[in-house]
């Protein structure tokens, strides 16, 4: 969860691993304050998201996607279009870091907008607006590229 969340936001395996290590180091220091597994999951999502946003705002540069991170050939038997999924991920990487984090929490962690709002200390309406605008932008770009009907 932690590494995946960091990776989808920062789009760099090395930076994502560094962030995830920092989150677990923080967890080690705060173990005494966590009361349940639900609290632990909430805490991990929250700390990871905030660290990703901080890192994204500090760097403010587009991270190039290394060739090794692009999935190899699509496997026909799985029925999945890995190239299309990668195209979505590339387009998501162009979104501002806040919107990227909201999208990751929604589609990786399957959180409801109210849960995302709690995790990010953000009004629910802002979360909904991020989701609406990001999805509309992705659709529009994919249609323009001919990847979506």
């Amino acid at each position: 969860m932690v590494f995946g969340l960091a990776y989808h936001v920062v789009r760099d395996r090395t930076v994502a691993e560094d962030l995830a290590q920092e989150v677990f180091l923080d967890l080690y220091r705060n173990l005494g304050n966590l009361e349940s597994s639900a609290h632990l999951r909430f805490w991990l999502r929250r700390v990871t998201s905030h660290r990703c946003i901080d890192r994204g705002r500090r760097e403010r540069r587009r991270l190039e996607i290394a060739v090794e991170h692009v999935p190899e050939q699509a496997v026909p038997s799985s029925g999945r279009d890995f190239l299309f999924e990668e195209r979505i991920r590339r387009l998501v990487a162009e979104l501002p870091v806040g919107a990227r984090t909201v999208m990751t929490l929604r589609y990786q962690e399957d959180l409801e907008p109210s849960e995302i709002a709690d995790t990010l200390d953000m009004p629910v309406n802002t979360v909904k607006s991020h989701l609406r605008r990001s999805i509309a932008l992705l659709r529009e770009r994919l249609i323009r590229q001919g990847g979506l009907q």
């Binding site: 995946g4 290590q21 998501v92």
Partner: peptide, 23 residues
Amino acid sequence: ELRRAFERKEPPAGFADRVLARI
């Protein structure tokens, strides 16, 4: 499609050992 694009990624091998080393 979005859920598939955002599916969880596993950390690289040796991640847990590196975390323990940092701790």
